[in-house]
């Protein structure tokens, strides 16, 4: 079985874990991302599987989406961000090395995932308004 399917649950866990540590347990944004990633690395480093570095990178990258502000992102949106991030990350894995060489690729993927979710939400609200106007 391909190890790539675990990227999605790892990403969702990273995003949600960081969000919960940040907003429910009062850790700072940076500390919650770093601590959750170190816990994940500790939990998975004993597994002898070639996909482990990829899962750790997915968890780490998705944890950046969990560093968002709670006024802007609810838990449901953070889960969505994790899902979108995993798709972007899988696309990045298949991209040429020149795209992956600079640092911050994971963070940029997380930023894009956040923007996709914010834009999707804005479009959903706008379409709902238009539908209401058409009904009237």
């Amino acid at each position: 079985m391909s190890p790539e399917w675990i990227v999605t649950p790892a990403a969702v866990a990273g995003a949600l874990g960081t969000y919960v540590l940040h907003h429910d347990y009062g850790f700072g944004a940076v500390r919650s991302s770093a601590v959750s990633t170190l816990v994940f690395i500790g939990a998975t480093s004993s597994l002898h599987h070639p996909g482990v570095p990829m899962w750790q990178a997915a968890f780490f990258g998705a944890s950046f989406t969990g560093m968002c502000a709670s006024e802007r992102f609810t838990r449901r949106k953070v889960v969505l961000c994790g899902l979108v991030f995993s798709l972007i990350y899988l696309a990045v894995l298949r991209s040429p090395a020149i795209v992956r060489a600079p640092g911050g690729v994971l963070g940029t993927s997380a930023f894009l995932a956040g923007l996709v979710v914010v834009t999707g939400e804005a479009l959903r609200v706008r379409f709902a308004r238009v539908r209401l106007m058409l009904r009237k």
Binding site: M67, G103, G104, F111
Partner: peptide, 21 residues
């Protein structure tokens, strides 16, 4: 830009290293 959206720190790092490259 885009206050409250996660991943901005990584985007800054990416822009910086891409510029350096």
């Amino acid at each position: 830009v885009f206050p409250g959206v996660g991943g901005k720190l990584g985007a800054i790092a990416f822009a910086t290293t891409a510029l350096a490259l």
